[in-house]
Amino acid sequence: MAERAFRFGRARHLVGIAGLPAAARGAVGVIVLNTGLMHRVGPFRLHVDLTRRLNALGYPTLRFDLSTMGDSGASAEAGSREQQIRADVSAAAALLAGQAGCTRFVLVGLCRGAQSAHIACSEAGVAGAIFLDGYIYRTFGFKLRHYLPRLLSPARWHGFLARKLREAMVPEEEVSFGSVYPPRAQVRDELAGMLARGLRLCFVYSGGIGEQLNHPRQFRECYGRGVADHPALRMDLLDGTDHTYTLLCDRERLFGHVEGWLLEQFPPAG
């Protein structure tokens, strides 16, 4: 298996590493997007390990830096961040098509990467996506499961009051660069649109977003049966893990899920 570094894109401003298995012409290509602001290697080298494992299964891969992130520069084109992401993913797909003959692509993204993948699912050739800690919204069910046990626990009350007191005494210094979610109805409609176009979607949530999701049932509460129960969509909650799969055993669990879903939905060519 060969890995090659490329400069590509309309201004040759994008940097990425393609994994090109020897006998993979025409296979589905897997494109891995930046996690947060971290460069293409991913947290704890997660993207490197994942792409190499997928290469061993026969999938061509590309882990790359979106415009202005990691080692990639700016394209000097005007446009929104969404337009830029779509153009970057389109360029990444073109690169894999040229290098490995891929005609269909699966996007993979964790956290902010999942949001980028969501945006780029409209691009030609995208046949599926793996959203790791992708969009999820608090529902009435979430609040019931979250707050009811706390209301009845003196220890929780004590912790809550102590935290509020600390927050009042210590001024907030950190500037938050957290992303703003689009309205839930918009995301639900966009997911429904992806499924209607034939995309296959895999959602994997970590245990690290317990403040956002606290039960597998919440996905259906959030997006409704039309999306959640669609046969082309799979949702798993890897309870107990943290957001970036810091422990090796958690990463192994994640890789097993991703590989299993890919092999089932997009068996490698040949």
């Binding site: 971290m38 460069h39 290697v41 990691g70």
Partner: peptide, 8 residues
């Protein structure tokens, strides 16, 4: 992880 944190 320091390699990744210092990349930028």
């Amino acid at each position: 992880q320091m390699l990744l944190r210092t990349h930028r």
